[in-house]
Structure formats: C-alpha cells, structure tokens
C-alpha cells in the first residue's frame, strides 16, 4: 500500500514564507529533502519513517529492539522445555 522508508535527519530548516519545516534525510548514503511538518518534535539525529517526501512517524528506538529480545526468550523457553536436548 505504501512504501515508507526509515531515514536519519541530518539537518532541519524552517522555510520563512510558509513556516514549513524541511529536513535533509539520509537513507544509507543518499540524501533527500523531506517535509517534517507532521513530526514537529523530531530532532537532528532521529530516524523518521518517510513516505512520498513526508516524515510520518519517528522511529521508536526502544521498540525497535523488542523483537530481538523476544527471539532470545524463545531460546530460553526451549532450553527449559527440552533441558536434555538443549
């Protein structure tokens, strides 16, 4: 439905005419100007999800690691369930 790609905010400018927030976003080495008006609290260094030139959400770093903690839990559970064959 909608391709949204995570990129890192490298710089932020505010356009005088309409007061719109623009940011330079880095996607693994290439840079594109993106509108940051929908993520007013985003700062330089944050990662944002970008779709058709607009940042729509700030990547939650803590949550980003949650799935890997869950994966480690599977291993622990498995060791408990089959102690012998661990």
């Amino acid at each position: 439905m909608c391709l949204a790609v995570p990129g890192k905010i490298v710089s932020i400018q505010v356009e005088e005419y309409l007061g719109l927030r623009r940011g330079q976003i880095d996607f693994g080495g290439i840079r594109k100007e993106v509108c940051l008006d929908y993520t007013p609290e985003a700062l330089v260094g944050d990662f944002v999800m970008v779709h058709v030139g607009f940042a729509l959400s700030i990547v939650n770093e803590v949550e980003a690691h949650r799935v890997f903690a869950a994966l480690r839990e599977f291993d622990l559970l498995e060791d408990l369930e089959t102690p012998g064959a661990g």
């Binding site: 999800m49 959400s57 949650r66």
Partner: peptide
C-alpha cells in the same frame, strides 16, 4: 509494528 505505529497514530496528519 511498535517501532513505527502508536495507538492514536499521527494527530497532526
């Protein structure tokens, strides 16, 4: 998709 989605979504949008 907790790293990108909040329950209430993006109010400004």
């Amino acid at each position: 998709y907790t790293r990108a989605v909040a329950r209430e979504g993006n109010r400004a949008a």
